Each structure stands twice: as C-alpha cells, then as structure tokens.
Computed example of a mutant assay.
Amino acid sequence: MDTSALDITFDVHGVCNYCSEFLVRSGHLLDQDDEERAARLSAFVDKVKADGAGKDYDCIVGVSGGVDSSWVLVKAIELGLRPLAVHMDNGWNSELAQNNIANLVKRLNVDLYTHVIEWGEYKSLMQAFFDSDVIDVELLYDNAMLAVNYKMAARYGVRHILSGSNQSSEGMAIPARWNWFKYDRKNIVSLARRSSVKIKTLPMLGTLGYVYSTYVRKVKWHSILDLMPYNKVSAMQSLKENFGYKPYPYKHYESIFTRFYQGYILPEKFSVDKRRVHFSTLIISGQMTRSAALSDLESIPYPSEKELIEDRQYFLKKMGWSESDLTGYLSRAPRDHVEFGTEIGFWKFCMSVYRAVLK
C-alpha cells in the first residue's frame, strides 16, 4: 500500500493503517484454532441443511468463474449442501470464464441459473457512467449481481447465500475513493437519468431492498471460506487438476471489461492499482511474499502488452468508441459519485437505527 490511498498513515514501525486495521478486524480469522473452526463450519452446515429441508436448494452460490466463488461451489458439494449456482452475464464474459463455469457445474452436477442482461441497455448505462467520469463503473455489475442473488433466493425460499468473499485473500479494506457503495441504487438511477437512459431490464438493489431481504425475509450472506482453511494457490491447483480450471493472471480478471478497467482505466485515469490491496492481503495471510509483490508491481497490471492492446481494441469496438473518445475520457478529471445523487446517507441512517435497536 502507498499514498495512492489518500487517507493512508504509517506508524513508527512503517506499518500502514490498512494493514493494522485488517489485522485488528480479521487477525482472529487467520489464526483460528482448527478444531474451533471445524466446529463452527459443522454447525453452519447443519443450519443450512435444516433451513433448506424440503426445498429444491438449500443455498445460493454466485459464481463468476473466479477462484474464490468456484472453490465455494466445490466445498458446498463436498459438505453435502444442495446449491443453486447463479451467474450473471453482462456481455463481457471471457471465453475462459465461460468454460471454467461450464466445466465446474457439469462435473459437480449442479444446476446453474444465468441471468443475461440486455446488452444495449447495459452498454448505454456504462456510457452514462463514463460520461459522468465517476470511478466505479463496476457498480452496475456488482449491484445487479447482488439483486439477482437475492431474487433467486426469494424464488426458491432459500435463506443462505454463500459468497466467495473471504478475509485471507481479500480482507483488506478498499480505500474509500477506489470504488463506491455497492447498494447505491439511487446513484445508478440518477446517472442513467442524467444521460436519458431508461432502465428496463437491469436488476437493481437499494437500501430498502437490502433491509427487506435481510431483516424481513432473513436471507443472509456468508463468507464460508472463513470457516475453513483457505489458500488461494492450493485451491487453484485443485481446481486445475480436478475440473480443468484455467487461471487468470490477477483477481477478477475473468471479465474482459474488469481486467481492462482494473488493468488500464483505473491506473490511467484514477491512479489506482488494485493489485496493492490484493497483494497486501495475501502477504498478511502468508500466501505471498512482499518481495514477490513488489516485483510484480514493477510491471503493468496485465499479462502482457500484447493482451492489453487486444483488450483495448475489443473495448473500443464493443463500446463503439474511437481512439480519440478513449483519450478524451482518460484526460478528463474524475468526479465523485456523490455529485449525482446517492442513498449512502439513508443507508447509514438505517444501519444506525439497527445498531441502536440491538443495544
């Protein structure tokens, strides 16, 4: 981590606040006693099975084609759960990601629900985000994926959604200005309206939808990988050997847009290299050395210059942009999401009320 995270501070030992806060918040998860962790996992599995008794599925697993979510699906089957795999296609899936998902669900004999977003609408919404110069274009996908998972949980009466999120490979907090609040339906609607884009098919989830799903329907997200030993390298090796899995160079690069966004747009326009957060988490959890991370950061966040050029041309063609369109976009100053309408204040109010009620 470095000063590209604007609020970074360092203690007298040179340790930054992101690392120290991560250890305070999640150190106990990294150092769990094996027996205690196994007991917690067993109790959780029993709960999921009991809540899902008599239903078609007892849990939902959102799959992107990445290592974390793929491993969750594998472990769910090993634990005797009956998951429905849920995937969302926004038009940017790499062929590699599609093959990884297809191989996985076929060999595990798991049902897969794929929600395909209408490309014309999604393209227009992406353009609205680009025109506004806000940082988190991925808010569109992330929010819709949340909405689709909750929708499928409601359809089948499922109360448990198993997430690939985990502390050992992605537990460090993302700096505040590196992305945006993922439940901000109002921000999406406001940016769409600003560019005269009508939202007809995009699934969305806001604060009220989250409150209803979580506290009325009692649907919960679970980071199940925190209930078991999880080493990303070992998991990837197992996926390769048993499911024909083919890895990606960096986290979330299973999407063509995501790797172009993280590997090119974020560094060029916003001076953000998310590898710093991802690598730092792996270093703290003992899955990567600091020297290896520093060495990797000396190169561009892409497998090769050739693949960057290919993705750049693919992006321009798919979005209908010229080289000058891209140059003009990259040269404009970034703007804050909050300028265009947000419900983050309402979210904080609801969470404060909830905490007060708990007291």
Rank of each mutant, 00 (worst) to 15 (best):
R25C: 06
L79V: 11
L140H: 07
A53L: 14
R276Y: 15
V105K: 00
P83D: 06
L30Y: 07
D68S: 02
N149C: 06
C59V: 06
D33I: 07
A43N: 10
G320T: 03
A85L: 03
F346P: 01
V45R: 10
G341A: 04
H278I: 03
A192V: 01
Q287I: 03
F243E: 00
T207C: 10
V74P: 02
Y215W: 08
Q237Y: 15
G171R: 04
A102L: 02
I174L: 09
E121Q: 04
A292K: 14
D11K: 09
S190C: 12
T207R: 06
Y329H: 13
D58W: 09
K348L: 12
R40N: 14
Y245F: 00
V353L: 13
A144S: 08
P249S: 15
L73T: 03
N93C: 11
N100E: 07
H278G: 04
L330C: 05
P267D: 01
S238C: 10
V353M: 12
M236L: 04
Y264C: 07
L308G: 05
A173V: 04
K49D: 05
S64M: 11
F260Y: 08
R335E: 03
M228Y: 11
K318M: 06
D336K: 05
G62V: 03
V72Q: 03
K218R: 15
G206F: 04
M204V: 03
S255H: 00
Y18I: 09
S64W: 08
L358D: 11
E36V: 14
G66V: 04
I77R: 14
S70R: 02
D325H: 08
I283V: 09
S322H: 03
A147V: 00
D226Q: 05
E241T: 12
I101E: 01
N93S: 13
K123Y: 10
R25K: 11
Y183A: 13
L308Q: 07
K198M: 12
S69Q: 00
D2P: 13
K106Y: 14
G164P: 06
K186Y: 09
A333R: 00
S291N: 13
W347V: 08
S291L: 11
A293L: 06
A176E: 15
L96C: 15
G157T: 06
A333Y: 10
D131T: 07
L79D: 05
F346R: 08
L225T: 05
K47N: 15
W92H: 03
I117A: 14
F315V: 02
V211I: 15
D58N: 14
W119H: 01
K274V: 00
D142G: 10
K198P: 14
S4L: 12
A176S: 13
A53G: 14
K359Q: 10
A102W: 05
S304T: 04
S285D: 00
Q287D: 02
K359E: 10
Q262D: 07
L358K: 13
K306T: 10
L202C: 05
S132I: 00
N109V: 13
G66W: 02
Y253H: 08
F129E: 02
S223N: 15
F260A: 11
I8F: 10
A38Y: 02
S42G: 15
I188G: 08
I256L: 15
D325R: 04
P247I: 01
F349L: 05
K317G: 02
P203F: 08
V24I: 12
